[in-house]
Amino acid sequence: MKNRWVLFVPLAIMGLLFGAFIYRLMTPPDTLIQSQWIDKPMPLFDLPPATAGVAGLKSSQLADGRPRLVNVFASWCIPCRAEAPQLEALKAAGVPIDGIAIRDRPEDVAMFLREYGNPFDRIGADMQSSVQIALGSSGVPETFLIDGKGIIREQIQGVILADQVPEIVAKLEAMK
């Protein structure tokens, strides 16, 4: 028969399929959606204060020459509580940190700050996640490293772990 090779086509397709399966079993899916808005200027926004006694946040304030962190958090987010000590450590290391509180009520933010400390210079209230969406952020907590010109340089998804703290300090130092 002339077209004998055709009979091996199903086997070959199966082989490709199994290749994909093996690849996936060896490299488990990365379910985090990284922001693509990296090395781009901070989107324009002007957020009101999230709670009394702490200033709100404007995007223009983020380009004052000092590299900094913008922490996207929420009082109702349980992992954010676990992140508080690391943010305190960063602040102690001299890193300026601004916060964006997602879908939060002023009294809840105040309670959160009382309980877990306030490392933030300013906290903007993002009531409808619009700044979060403009940043390409897909959850809380997330932290963005901003250089002195207000350009987003890196996104950290999830809780900042204790051993990441010196690394972040060094990176911000390098942006100066």
Binding site: M1, R4, L7, F8, P10, L11, M14, F18, L25
Partner: peptide, 30 residues
């Protein structure tokens, strides 16, 4: 919960059955 051991076991089983049947097909169907 992804269980790599079970996943690998099932994959190996499938490879034997599907691969075996399709090989038999390729050899005999001609």
């Amino acid at each position: 919960a992804v269980d790599p051991e079970r996943g690998t076991f099932l994959l190996a089983l499938m490879a034997i059955y599907i691969g075996g049947a399709l090989t038999l097909f390729a050899l005999r169907a001609g």
